[in-house]
């Protein structure tokens, strides 16, 4: 991928397509906007807007029961919403990849984002997920590809945390 100089968001979408992802569940975040748009525009992907993040855990489980591979997109603030539902993933050993845009870190302007943002990685680890963090644009596509490979070859959960430094701190 050394000569892949496209935007890191496009590289993530390519990783999803290469892994035959055909369902994307999401609670929107500005950092995921481009991925969500690409998913909506792709006729081979079911895009599912969720009212709350834990729905996505059950959605991905149902999809896998029916033979469909999915990813979930959410912001760090929504990871805590998933904790109880993630017992479903762990108990049934469902392969699951959750791509999280981080808030509450580098140059955060909103203090309400800090509590959940600072606990996101630990929350995933408590729930049995492997966690990969992406700080550099060139790592985004390969890390998502690796997470998908890992999760779907071993029936595990993998979270990819896209750091606020990568995404760019939100400003108004």
């Amino acid at each position: 991928m050394a000569d892949d100089d496209r935007d890191w968001r496009d590289q993530i979408f390519t990783a999803l397509k290469d892994a035959d992802i055909s369902l994307v569940g999401y609670v929107p975040d500005a950092g995921h906007a481009k991925l969500i748009e690409a998913s909506i525009a792709d006729n081979d992907i079911d895009d599912v807007a969720l009212t709350t993040e834990e729905e996505g855990v059950a959605l991905a489980t149902g999809a896998w029961l029916g033979g469909k591979k999915s990813v979930l997109l959410m912001q760090s603030s929504g990871v805590g919403n998933c904790i109880n539902m993630l017992s479903l993933r762990e108990t049934a050993r469902i392969p699951m990849v959750i791509i999280v845009t981080m808030r509450g870190e580098y140059a955060e302007f909103n203090p309400w984002q800090i509590p959940m943002g600072s606990k996101t990685q630990a929350a995933f680890e408590l729930c049995g997920f492997k966690v990969e963090r992406v700080d550099r644009a060139e790592d985004a596509g390969p890390t998502v590809a690796a997470a998908l490979s890992f999760a779907y070859h071993s029936d595990t959960g993998v979270a990819v945390l896209l750091s606020q430094k990568l995404i760019g701190a939100k400003t108004w």
Binding site: G62, W64, G67
Partner: peptide, 13 residues
């Protein structure tokens, strides 16, 4: 709280 969402994922698959 997950049954309907599981059903949706399965129905889409």
């Amino acid at each position: 709280g997950g049954a309907v969402s599981m059903g949706l994922g399965l129905a889409l698959a």
